[in-house]
Each structure stands twice: as structure tokens, then as C-alpha cells.
């Protein structure tokens, strides 16, 4: 399967903050690299001030954003009622979609991929980058 070039994909900056933190920018750069993986459909990256959505199919922006928002809300609920401590990694496995959500400092990253993609490779890649950047 040929992967669409991400340059052609929809890239929407929901809200821009004039002073973007280094963390956000650094993670954003890593995600651009991860997006070149076959089967990765795009990502949503968000911190307190800024959110960037980069998805192959721009029509799915809203439902995907709502899905990850609900997933984080659920993780928060689970951590409160089960005294889990704040969840730092979330995996959503749907029939046709896989979503990996990771919290790096205050930045939340959601990576959307096809069902058959090995999410552990992406997670390891993301964590190795972030460790190198000494977050």
C-alpha cells in the first residue's frame, strides 16, 4: 500500500500560542518523523495552550478529536476511582483503527494508525526520542 504524502494531508493549527514551549515543538518534530511510518494516519498533539491536528483525512478531525478527548477523560476517571495514579499511556484498539495516546510532560500526543501497525514500535520510538531530549 502506498502511503500518502503527509505534505498533502490536512494540517490544522487549532490555536496558536506566540510562545510555544520547547517541549511542544520538540515532540511535534518527533511526530513528523513518526508520521512517515507506513500505516500511520496522523496525529493530534496538544498542550495547555496549543493543539495541532495532522490527519490524512481531514473529515475525521472532529470525531477523532472527540474520541481521544473521551479516552483521556476516561483515563482520568479510572485513575481517580481506582487510585491508579495518572495514566501516561493509553491504547485504543478499534475494529479498523488503533490509537496510541502518550503523555509527555504536559504534552498529550495521540497517534492514529491502521489496525495492523505495531504500536509498540511507535511507542518505543517516541519514548527513545523523548528520553534523548531529556524530558
Amino acid at each position: 500500500m502506498t502511503k500518502k504524502k503527509l505534505e498533502e494531508s490536512a494540517s490544522i493549527v487549532v490555536e496558536c500560542c506566540p510562545e510555544e514551549t520547547i517541549t511542544f515543538d520538540a515532540v511535534h518534530e518527533i511526530l513528523k518523523d513518526i508520521c512517515s511510518f507506513v500505516g500511520v494516519q496522523g496525529y493530534i498533539i496538544k498542550d495547555e495552550d496549543t493543539a495541532t491536528i495532522n490527519l490524512e483525512d481531514s473529515e475525521k478531525t472532529v470525531p477523532y478529536a472527540m474520541l481521544v478527548s473521551q479516552a483521556f477523560e476516561l483515563a482520568k476517571e479510572l485513575s481517580q476511582v481506582s487510585c491508579l495514579g495518572e495514566g501516561d499511556t493509553l491504547l485504543l484498539d478499534c475494529a479498523d483503527l488503533k490509537v496510541l495516546c502518550v503523555k509527555v510532560n504536559d504534552v498529550t500526543v495521540s497517534i492514529f494508525m491502521e489496525k495492523n501497525v505495531d504500536h509498540t514500535k511507535i511507542l518505543n520510538k517516541l519514548l527513545s526520542y523523548t528520553e534523548r531530549l531529556q524530558f
Binding site: 475525521k60 470525531p63 477523532y64 472527540m66 474520541l67 473521551q70 479516552a71 476516561l74 483515563a75 479510572l78 485513575s79 481506582s82 491508579l84 495514579g85 495518572e86 495514566g87 501516561d88 499511556t89 493509553l90 491504547l91 485504543l92 484498539d93 478499534c94 475494529a95 479498523d96 483503527l97 488503533k98 490509537v99
Partner: peptide
């Protein structure tokens, strides 16, 4: 979440990992 996950064809599995526990 299950309702929102319809966009991906329906929720099959969900996992939350924290330091010591997971759901």
C-alpha cells in the same frame, strides 16, 4: 467512549497504563 469509537469501527480493546497499575 464506545459510542465515540464507532468512528474506528467499534471499540475492541482499551488499555490505560500508569506507573504501577493498568486498566
Amino acid at each position: 467512549l464506545i459510542k465515540h469509537a464507532r468512528v474506528g469501527g467499534g471499540l475492541e480493546f482499551f488499555r490505560v497504563d500508569s506507573l504501577g497499575y493498568c486498566a
